[in-house]
Amino acid sequence: MLEVFGLGCSRGERVLFRGVSFKLEARGLLHVAGANGSGKTSLLRILCGLGAADAGEVRWRGEPIRALRESYWRELVYMGHANALKDDLSATENLLLACALAGRAATPAAAAPALDAFGLAACAHLPVRALSQGQKRRATLARLALSMQAPLWILDEPLAALDVAAVRYLEDVLLAYADGGGSVIFTTHQDAAIGSRVPQRVDLDAAAC
């Protein structure tokens, strides 16, 4: 369960947002809304413990994440704008490495169904630089299929660069994950409803100053 108290962040001399507070329970979906440059990515990075906030605190299961460090990161999956993929490695190799970093041993046999689910069966062994932007995004998202037991997902624009079928499939994955007890924080510029569920909402434009 993630609790956030009075988060404030500024970029150089521009104050992005101030006093952002919310609670996210298990099975919760949280949509971070805001115009471009309102600090959505900065907020997500602060929630992961990557960025530093000017004020406020983030607590996971009652403990500040600054103190938890690795034990918090073990339970977190973060996906930024950048596809964390190495162009010279294949989609399978990238996926196996992502699982290793998250501390979960994964075998190629386990990786194959995850990639198939995201429509990458044919090109699973091609170096990633040969894939299209949409395919690369799906290769990154394939990691979600193998991280069902991680309690917290923080996804920056997960639906970007995906075709209609992929968007629908990803929404099913998010719903299945949430029903299974996971909580998701995500940003999107399309409409925020995930399947039938309307997520919690944090609007950074309101928190700007």
Binding site: C48, L50, N83, L101, A102, G103
Partner: peptide
């Protein structure tokens, strides 16, 4: 540098291992 550019370094900062 290469890992910083393609975002993989960020994932290493969020890894389960120190």
């Amino acid at each position: 540098a290469a890992d910083y550019a393609d975002g993989t370094l960020e994932q290493m900062l969020l890894a389960a291992t120190p």
